[in-house]
Design a protein around this nucleic acid. Structure first.
Lengths: 146, 146
DNA sequence: CCGTTTTCAACATAATTTTATAGATTTTAT
DNA sequence: ATAAAATCTATAAAATTATGTTGAAAACGG
């Protein structure tokens, strides 16, 4: 399985929840409600949101009445940014980003094919914003309400 | 990191080695030589080659003078077959292949985007054969010999 | 034909990373 | 003060990655 880690998947869903409330007044979303809506452990979400905060994709407000919110409008957040933050990158193999990861690179044919596949993915996620996903979500919920 | 497991990566390199010797007379390749060429533990290669054998991508010959060889010509082995055997699939997320994996599917926007990304990858690996990779390899070695 | 070597085959174990949970602390609004 | 919420630290469970040990089949030399 060429799989995304749970961090990337859960993190995107978390960001999607925040995106849905972006612009609401008094809009900070608390992790507990995300945890309930998405049935993900709140403790795990805490670990996931830290890097999102560090990379300035979300803001936090502490204390009662606090919570998290997007640091920028959803149409200015690329999915590739989320993945890059949570997965390190959206590369299929480390040797693509990390120059020194593997000495075989200059004569490695498999590097070429993983690299090409990675470019395909990157191209897709670079041109996809949180706003796009919000719209997919709304359309889908409309088509099949409840 | 949306990463391929080492099984997929090492396994492809293993298959590439076998492909290079396909057609040689007395061509069975021993794992030890693959292990040395690719600097991968021979024990780990043994674990990787078992599923490749089960799915009939490689044949084995036991005993002295034995080894492994491709079960079909390299231009008739798709990279997607190798990945499917070793990774379970080349899906980014399990919910794409496994119907029952996640109940959120009917109203999950992220499913849509992981699915689309998976189709991109699948399309690429479905149209790429071991022979293609062998040619990339030969071209690369020619360009920068030794 | 017999034993030795070569190789695959099977099983068990160890190390590492990923995934997930738990408890205690700090900050802030009311 | 009190309660709500983020933050910090630790730990546990599971999967992935890797190694070690022994066994079994086939070829080969004598």
């Amino acid at each position: 399985m060429i799989k995304m880690s749970t961090k990337g998947r859960y993190g995107t869903r978390l960001m999607l929840q925040l995106a849905h409330h972006y612009g609401d007044k008094g809009q900070a979303v608390i992790l507990r409600s995300v945890a309930e809506n998405e049935t993900i452990s709140i403790r795990y979400l805490e670990q996931i949101i830290i890097p999102l905060k560090v990379s300035k994709l979300v803001k936090s407000i502490r204390g009662a009445g606090g919570g998290y919110s997007l640091a920028r409008p959803p149409d200015q957040i690329k999915i590739s940014e989320i993945l890059h933050t949570l997965e390190g990158s959206c590369c299929l193999v480390e040797c693509i980003e990390d120059e020194d990861f593997c000495p075989r690179k200059p004569y490695c044919a498999t590097f070429e094919i993983w690299n090409k596949a990675t470019q395909l993915l990157k191209g897709y996620f670079d041109n996809l914003t949180l706003q796009d996903v919000v719209e997919i979500d709304r359309k889908k919920k409309k088509a099949k309400p409840k």
